[in-house]
Amino acid sequence: AITKEQDALMKLIVEAYNKHQIPQDVTKKLLQEQYSTEENFLLLTEIATSQVQVLVEFTKNIPGFLSLDHEDQIALLKGSAVEAMFLRSAQVFSRKMPKGHTEVLEERIRKSGISEEFITPLFNFYKSVGELHMVQEEQALLTAITILTPDRPYVKDQQAVERLQEPMVELLKKLCVLQHPQEPQYFARLLGRLTELRTLNHYHAEMLTSWRVN
C-alpha cells in the first residue's frame, strides 16, 4: 500500500500538475477555424513556449528540485522540455475531447509545415499513450520522472537527481499496481512510453531544422 509520505508526495505533484496549465486564451486559439500554414506555425510555437513555462512552474513544485545545483536545474529542464511537452499534449488527444476538437488539432498540426516524417511518429505516440488511459496521478508522476532523468546532457550531479527520481518511480510502480490490478505489465508499458518519447526528441530536433528551411 502507499505510505503516508508517498500519498503526500503524490498529492503535491498532482496539485502542481493541475495548477499549472496552458492559459485558456492560448488553447482557445487552437480551436478557431481556418488558419494558414504560417499562422499554424506561429500558433504551435506560441503553445510550445507556453508549455515550457508551464513545465518550469510545475517543476518548481517537485520536492528537492530547487535545492539542486542551479545549472543542473537548467540542464534537466532543457533536456526534458520536448519530452514533457509531448507527454502533456498526448493527454489532450487521449482525454475525452468534445466532438471534433481532436480532429481540428490534428489538422492544425498536419497543416503547419511539419514534415510527414515527424507527424507519423508523433501521432503513433499519441495513440499509444491514449490506449493506456492513464489516470491523472500517473500522468503527473510520469512527467516528474521524465524531468528528473539523471543522464541528461550537462547534468553534473547525477546522484542528486537519482535521489529525487527514485521515490517517484517507486510510487508510480505502486500506483500502477493499485490502479491496474488486472494488468501486471502496466508499469512496464508506462516506462516503454518514456523510451518512445526519447525517440521523439530526435525527430523533434530534425523537425525544427526542416521547419526553418521551409
Binding site: V52, V56, L208, T209, R212
Partner: peptide, 21 residues
C-alpha cells in the same frame, strides 16, 4: 540553433520568476 537558445532563455526566465514572487 536559435530555437534551443530560445528554449534556455525561456527556462532561465521562468526559473528566475520565483525571485520576484
Amino acid at each position: 540553433p536559435a530555437s534551443n537558445l530560445g528554449l534556455e532563455d525561456i527556462i532561465r526566465k521562468a526559473l528566475m520568476g520565483n525571485l520576484e514572487e
